[in-house]
Amino acid sequence: MKRLLETLVENNREITKKGNLASYIPELLNADKNDLGVAVITLDGKVHSAGDCSKKFTMQSISKVVSLILAIQDNGKERVFEKVGMEPTGDSFNSIVNLEIKQKVKPYNPMINAGAIATTALIYGVSEEEKFEKILNFTRKVTGNNDIDINKSVYKSEKLTGDRNRYLAYYLKSNNTIDGDVEDILDLYFKQCSIEVNCIDIAKFASMLANDGILPWSGERVISREVSRIVKTIMVTCGMYDASGKFAVHIGIPAKSGVGGGIMAAVPKRMGIGVYGPSLDKKGNSIAGTHILKELSDELDLSIF
């Protein structure tokens, strides 16, 4: 496996030149465009990695998986999906179109920004600090990495430049889709997006999902099989922004990407995969990371379809 991963990184590193770093969060421009790494965690707990797998990056939209899980655990699936839909959208992840022009007050799904803000707003806690500790501690537990924390520079950068997300949140508030103080909800959302991980961390998280909610290395169940199923299904249909359909056809693995360059992919009953490559395609997905997942899926017959 390690030799295969090393070959995939070597063969696809040149593709990083064809993409661009995320620019709408200025701090993300400090990443090295040429970085590329991959990690695989099999369900017996073995770790295989290659390339820049120890490089840290912020979760960004990958954190939407965490907030969705916690929202369902705190509220039940019926309450969550009263507030957020579960249908894919052909619009970009930060689009306002499906809320305003289409008069769709309920966000289409939890993987676009509006939907993720709505699920974050549903997480229980007496304060923003308590809610964030819940998000952070859950991430640490599932990854087995107690050193995980936020990148404060990225958090500040997101907070200073997050006007589109502010519009989305205030629009949701004005239509009673979310409750609570909008600025507190946004601050929590910016913090969760700024949690810093590496390829191995997200591969471990994905391996829990691949194992139906059980940590492969300890046997501990951390989420129910039903929640795991719901999350993986939404990852298939909505996890790769408005390239989700193409990704499902050509790669066929439940996955969630982030503009920090990470992709977390869960192959049911087989493995969790973490990829990092901050050079993005036009849809906001890691351009070389997507190629690695395509070749890995083809080589190991990973498609669930």
Rank of each mutant, 00 (worst) to 15 (best):
K104Y: 03
S303Q: 07
V84E: 02
I117D: 02
L302T: 04
L99R: 10
V105L: 05
T177R: 13
M86S: 12
L43T: 03
F305Q: 15
V182S: 00
N145C: 02
A31S: 12
L168S: 08
I185F: 15
R79S: 12
K232W: 06
C53S: 12
N146F: 07
I292T: 01
P107M: 10
M271N: 01
I25C: 10
N137E: 09
T42C: 05
L168Y: 06
Y124R: 14
M264W: 12
A265T: 04
I148K: 02
N146P: 08
L300A: 02
K269F: 05
S257T: 02
E78T: 15
D212F: 00
A210Q: 06
S224N: 01
D181R: 04
I25D: 05
E130R: 07
L136E: 06
D298E: 05
D44P: 02
N11F: 10
D147V: 00
M235V: 10
E130C: 06
P216G: 15
L29Y: 04
D74A: 07
V47K: 14
G219H: 04
Y24D: 09
Y108P: 01
D242G: 05
E226S: 00
G19C: 09
V249S: 09
K56E: 10
I230P: 02
Y241R: 05
Y124E: 15
Y124H: 13
T7M: 06
L302M: 00
V142G: 03
K232M: 13
Q60I: 10
C199K: 02
S63R: 00
I135W: 01
V222H: 07
N11M: 13
M271H: 07
D32N: 15
V259D: 13
K64F: 01
V182T: 04
I148W: 04
L172W: 10
A243L: 08
M111I: 03
N12W: 14
L29C: 03
K64H: 05
I234V: 11
C193M: 11
E6N: 12
F305N: 10
I251S: 08
V47P: 00
K18V: 12
G260K: 09
G19Y: 05
G284W: 00
I223P: 00
I195L: 07
L29S: 11
K246R: 14
I112M: 08
A116S: 14
T89K: 00
I230H: 05
D32V: 07
M271V: 05
I25W: 12
A248R: 06
G90T: 01
D52V: 00
V40I: 11
K269W: 04
Q192R: 01
S67A: 08
G85T: 14
G19M: 06
L70R: 10
S63M: 09
F81L: 13
A266I: 03
E14A: 12
G125Q: 03
I287E: 06
A71E: 04
G219S: 01
S63G: 11
S95F: 05
F205E: 10
P107S: 04
V275I: 13
A206D: 14
I200R: 12
K83R: 13
L70D: 13
G144K: 03
R79K: 15
F190P: 08
G239H: 07
K204P: 08
L68F: 09
K141H: 13
E130S: 11
G274A: 11
H291Y: 11
G219R: 00
A248T: 15
D212N: 14
Y170F: 03
S67P: 10
G45K: 15
L300V: 01
R140S: 00
